[in-house]
């Protein structure tokens, strides 16, 4: 009975729980990652988690805020995880540390901390890394069974922290360009989609292994909708717009434009649809606004993938749409109870 005002009861939900459940929903995707690409991703996630918490605590201290309640809200952890999942798992340790620290300190706390940042922190972290360290950001691991050599866990650890590979193994032997990237390069070399897809790195839907990771994220995302942690608006509008745009190009010229399904299951599309664009803080608050926001991001993702200079488009699509959020929200305000019905329908009251 400590509350002095009604309501005296509240739903047991807390920010920490919501964030935690989002992290739980990432687990199927992470499991697939480990299965197909080895445990290196776990190291990145651990590194990102530690950096995120440390940076968060330091920033809270600097800003003279209570450390404990904010550190327990799990939001920094989630940012770290999302960033770790967006960059190559076999990366030098400082890459993920720099990216996470930047995401938390600059793009979250300098804007006022939890709830106040206009840009998705994980995507800012990603953007900074890909612009500053483009080479390191392309060392994606070859999925299980496709590479000439496979690194054991200890070897992966040694590379991450010491930068050394086992004797006789080159970086090229264990990493590859992503399926999206390969597609783009090969298309430039005038190969047709069909020829390219005969390469062993492609699976049924998209890239070997990475398509399964995407399926894992899809499963986790559906759980988020079922558990009412996110609404359907963003994923449906995002995947819908991506599908529609990709579909149009594919129909017009199937030899040069891949199927929309390939786009769905490549790169970070599923992660973006269910986990990144659904970030409440940096997205619109109205339902119609969510549809516009996510559809815009879907369109931009496609354009960047097909015509832009970066291998994947989620990060920049998200950040560009983040800029539009205030305007979108302003123009999509829902009608209030009692101001909804046309005068005639309501007994001629007005």
């Amino acid at each position: 009975m400590a509350a002095f005002f009604s309501p005296f009861i509240s739903k047991p939900d807390t920010v920490a729980q919501i964030m935690l459940r989002v992290m739980l929903a990432l687990l199927p995707g992470i499991a697939m990652y480990v299965w197909y690409f080895g445990p290196a991703i776990l190291v990145s996630i651990a590194l990102a988690s530690v950096t995120a918490l440390a940076t968060e605590a330091a920033m809270l201290k600097l800003r003279n805020r209570p450390v404990a309640p904010f550190l327990q809200d799990n939001s920094a952890l989630l940012t770290g995880w999302l960033l770790a999942l967006s960059i190559p798992p076999l990366a030098p340790w400082w890459l993920i540390v720099v990216g996470t620290a930047f995401a938390i300190s600059i793009s979250k706390h300098l804007y006022g901390g939890l709830g106040n940042n206009p840009f998705n922190p994980a995507m800012i972290g990603f953007a900074v890394l890909i612009v500053s360290f483009p080479a390191q950001m392309t060392h994606w691991l070859t999925p299980h069974g496709l590479g000439q050599v496979e690194l054991g866990f200890l070897d992966q650890l040694r590379y991450t922290f010491l930068g050394s590979l086992p004797p006789g193994v080159t970086l090229d032997a264990i990493t590859m360009a992503t399926p999206l990237d390969t597609l783009k390069t090969r298309l430039h070399l005038d190969e047709s989609v069909k020829q390219i897809f005969d390469m062993p790195i492609y699976g049924r839907l998209a890239g070997q292994g990475s398509e399964m990771v995407s399926l894992g994220f899809l499963a986790g995302g559906l759980y988020l909708i079922a558990a009412r942690i996110i609404t359907w608006h963003v994923p449906v509008a995002y995947l819908g717009a991506l599908f529609a745009t990709a579909g149009l190009f594919h129909l017009a010229d199937p030899a040069h434009y891949v199927t929309p399904l390939f786009h769905w299951f490549s790169g970070a599309a599923m992660l973006g649809a269910f986990f990144i664009l659904t970030d409440p803080v940096t997205g619109p608050t109205t339902n119609r606004g969510k549809l516009i926001f996510a559809a815009g991001a879907g369109l931009l993702t496609y354009l960047i993938r097909a015509f832009g200079g970066f291998p994947d488009g989620i990060a920049f699509a998200t950040l560009l749409m983040n800029i539009c959020v205030p305007l979108i929200v302003l123009y999509t305000q829902p009608k209030v109870f009692g101001k909804k019905m046309p005068a005639g329908k309501n007994g001629g009251a007005q």
């Binding site: 009975m1 400590a2 005296f8 920010v15 309640p69 901390g113 939890l114 709830g115 803080v281 608050t285």
Partner: peptide, 16 residues
């Protein structure tokens, strides 16, 4: 029956 509410955090715009 009516536990004191946990400490208030900033709005995360979750739209609940």
């Amino acid at each position: 029956l009516f536990p004191p509410p946990p400490p208030t955090l900033p709005c995360i715009r979750c739209t609940r």
